[in-house]
Design a protein around this nucleic acid. Structure first.
Lengths: 320, 320
DNA sequence: CTGTTAGCGCTTTCAA
DNA sequence: TTGAAAGCGCTAACAG
């Protein structure tokens, strides 16, 4: 049975207990092959029995690296970022790293503050989720040891979502059903990714499919979409494409009130709630989880060797 | 301008640069008052200009404490825990602690694993969100330096939600409107807090108000509640109290399909989505954010002095 | 008030 | 294959 140490044990205690020198214990700890199996066995034994736990602070002080990576999300309760964080954690845990998660709240100042803390903490690298107006220069100190998600930049490696592709996917789905009256609800184009890019994709698709564009943009909230719905709805409207599931939810609710069950609604995010609440909807999956994994893989690569700045784009897909 | 250090600066570099001994620099760093203002000024100056950042690993190795606290949530995307985490972060950041957040996924083994890691990391304390079947013994190693949320236990300090109170609150709200036909949808009583306790509260309220109990329990999912709705619905039903907002959402949807807009639905969680989607609903706020703050305060207290094990119960309320 | 000195627990030469 | 010894960057006595 592993017994709880009453006092903090050090590597020296283990060494004495095992009747070896502390460097030997250290070698066992660091998987150094240059230890006689028998010795290794004995030391391992003692470690287990004593419940000894090497001090990470000491290890990381000596080694210079802390095996911690910082994750800076915009909001803890963002479902999309949550999915991505899951992907990140899976990868970094497997690589024996830990994570410290912080929340930027869409604020450059908070971001700066947190980055400073992470720096003090000696974290080995950071993964940062972008937001509208994000100032990439904040990451300068992490130069080659940072990956951003959903940010346009050259200065640091990144994983982006395919903002154009996700809307194109939705439009294709609709037009393949022969729909010609497809409206769009998005967010302010001042937001480049969720706003501008997705709207552009809608307009492009319209041009290509000879569809008369009909759209509105507003805030990223149920209410905004709910309110905007009427403005893009006519008797012939067959579908409304939305820049996100949140918007789709607002639109679907309004349509339900208006008894327009004939109108199909699409969103982005693959939220299970949308599907459950409104059957006549579908949602594009931007691949959040995979993007998280990619970002983590990318960062680990940077940490291993001095990989060069890379920009990945996560493919979207329609959930089956 | 703060300039980026090309090489890691140490306290010794600063000492030389400032023309003082390293202990003086250390004193400035640790806010030790025994430094001549002029000297302090100069050192501070040099630190700023050089962009020097003291190594946390070294500091924490020396001091024995890392100023990090571990937070073990059950799921990253749990809205309730997210709110609580926000409360926790606010408090601990203010106290100059950092957080490392991990996800137990309702699994004792994962919890154990994470606790072991946190121990290695030398975190000063942990805050753990309980789940059905949570084994509190896992926290033994953190004895006086742990606070659990939503767990019944004596072995460690805790903050609980008022499971009885939140349902009572909903029932009172309903009966005060003269309702006599109030049903209940909950989860399996095998789950003590969300299941048993809340159901009991419903039954108690029924007894007290001379209401004929009518209830079903199932899983904690939209679908489960949706399916169960019909079983607790009769022509006279005036309201359905639900053990959580998730359930309430499922119930409300079913009612909407049945055109039973006359039936009021209540949930627990104060989710904004519920209110937005279904006007004829209300939701009790279990005070997640506050509970998080309390838990953090409690932990900090434990960390400062050897406070004795305390059990707090977070009051619920009706959002205005 | 300030510099010197001794470690904190660990990894890593360097010899043996 | 192993042990002794030298630090990693910092704080906390202990002397000045």
């Amino acid at each position: 049975m592993t017994q709880k140490p009453s006092q903090k044990l050090t590597i020296l205690d283990i060494a004495k207990l095992a009747g070896v020198g502390k460097s030997t214990v250290s070698r066992v700890l660091t998987q150094d092959p240059r230890v006689k199996p028998a010795t290794r066995e004995k030391v391992t034994q003692v470690i287990r029995e004593s419940g000894y736990v090497p001090s990470k602070s000491a290890q990381s002080m000596r080694g210079g690296n802390s095996r911690v990576i910082g994750i800076l999300v915009s909001r803890l309760d963002s479902p999309s970022e949550n999915k991505a964080v899951r992907g990140i954690l899976e990868v970094i845990y497997a690589a024996d790293y830990d994570a410290v998660i912080m929340e930027s709240q869409f604020c450059n100042d908070k971001t700066r503050e947190h980055i400073a803390v992470l720096e003090k903490r000696n974290v080995d690298g950071v993964i940062v989720f972008g937001f509208s107006g994000f100032d990439c220069a904040i990451l300068d100190s992490f130069a080659q040891r940072a990956v951003v998600i959903a940010v346009d930049t050259d200065s640091v490696s990144s994983v982006s979502y395919d903002n154009k592709g996700m809307i194109t996917l939705a439009m294709d789905q609709l037009t393949s059903k022969g729909m010609k009256h497809v409206s769009y609800i998005g967010v302010d184009p001042a937001d480049r990714t969720t706003g501008q890019l997705r709207l552009d994709a809608y307009l492009d698709a319209c041009a290509q499919q000879h569809i008369e564009p009909c759209y509105r943009t507003g805030e990223l909230s149920y209410d905004s979409a709910y309110t905007l719905t009427d403005a893009v709805l006519s008797a012939q409207t067959q579908a409304i494409v939305c820049a996100s599931d949140t918007l789709a939810m607002g639109v679907a609710k309004r349509l339900q009130e208006l008894n327009r069950t004939d109108v199909l609604v699409s969103g982005v995010g693959a939220t299970d709630l949308l599907r459950f609440m409104f059957p006549n909807t579908f949602s594009v999956d931007p691949g959040y989880f995979d993007a998280g994994q990619c970002a983590a893989d990318l960062l680990l690569q940077h940490l291993r060797q001095d990989a060069k700045i890379t920009h990945l784009v996560q493919r979207s897909c329609l959930p089956v």
